[in-house]
Design a protein around this nucleic acid. Structure first.
Lengths: 164, 164
DNA sequence: ACTTGATATATAACTTGTTATGTAAATGCA
DNA sequence: TGCATTTACATAACAAGTTATATATCAAGT
């Protein structure tokens, strides 16, 4: 059976992007788990934002991440349960929260940069390297590339090259 | 606050694609509602697949759509509740279902093609027209384009041009 | 100071994606 | 024929996004 979503092209661009996104996220999460991280890929941007900017309010994170406020709140609840962040009250404006990485969170971020993020970025960059043409052409190439080798395997191979 | 997901580039490609996808889907659904359809954008591929190929099994749809089998099953339940499809048993192989558009479903698809899909395709094609460069460049341009004018407004304008 | 309105976050309900697993039917081999 | 395996779909539980709305605090005007 042919790939109808692909055939429909721009009409189903949303569905197409969504399925590629899910696949990337799942692969990245799997790679992370393989090297001992249990933070899902979707949480990386939160940690990275806090790493870059220090204390941020929920509203700041909404802007930094481009997702809805309840989405951010849920991510924060999850990360706080894992002990990676601390959520305090902003005493200047007590409606706001001040979210910061915990000391464990900072450790995790440092390890992630070294053991996960760097390899993921290399693998994704590799996957997308040399792509050109229309958006749909590039999406075709990405899906074909992932069919050939999943992102987690790509990240693993790069890592081995580098360590070996 | 800057857009951290954008800044992180390929590292967060999954998150980036996901948020663009959600935005496109929401806009398309809103446009559809505006012209009297209450089928969410994510269901269009299912309807289009059945329109193109006639009776399909669940497994066929899994391949055609590129989503998981339980995802397909849930979509079908929803579309059957709305009366747009009929799900029968395949008598040759009674493990399989044979999914077809109902007569109402066929009507809806014909109306959708005329009143929704055509305009959505035009609007998305317009949004992506003239894009070039790396994937990240193109994604930047798409998000900038959507900031300027949402996809549902784009579709509406095109439609007005055409009818006016 | 009080009241009114705006802003920041939380919560509830829903959607739609996933994985893991259960069940019924078909297939294949002894 | 009968049993084991495989296949097709259903179901349950979870994840992460959404909108709509509730609550708490701040800001402003009288």
């Amino acid at each position: 059976m042919e790939d109808v979503v692909r055939q429909l092209g721009y009409l189903c661009l949303g569905s197409r992007l969504k399925r590629i996104a899910e696949r990337l996220q799942a692969d990245v999460t799997r790679f992370g788990e393989g090297v001992g991280f249990d933070v899902p890929a979707g949480q990386y941007p939160v940690l990275a934002a806090l790493d870059r900017h220090g204390a941020l309010s929920v509203g700041d994170l909404v802007q930094a991440l481009g997702v809805s406020q309840p989405g951010v709140t849920r991510s924060l609840t999850l990360l706080a349960e894992k002990g990676l962040i601390e959520i305090e009250r902003n005493e200047r404006d007590r409606r706001q929260k001040a979210v910061v990485l915990s000391s464990e969170g900072r450790n995790i971020v440092e390890r992630s940069k070294r053991d996960v993020w760097r390899h993921v970025e290399t693998a994704v960059t590799g996957l997308c390297a040399g792509l050109s043409g229309s958006l749909l052409d590039q999406l075709d190439a990405i899906e074909a590339g992932l069919d050939e080798m999943s992102l987690d395997r790509r990240a693993l191979e790069k890592r081995e090259c580098q360590c070996g």
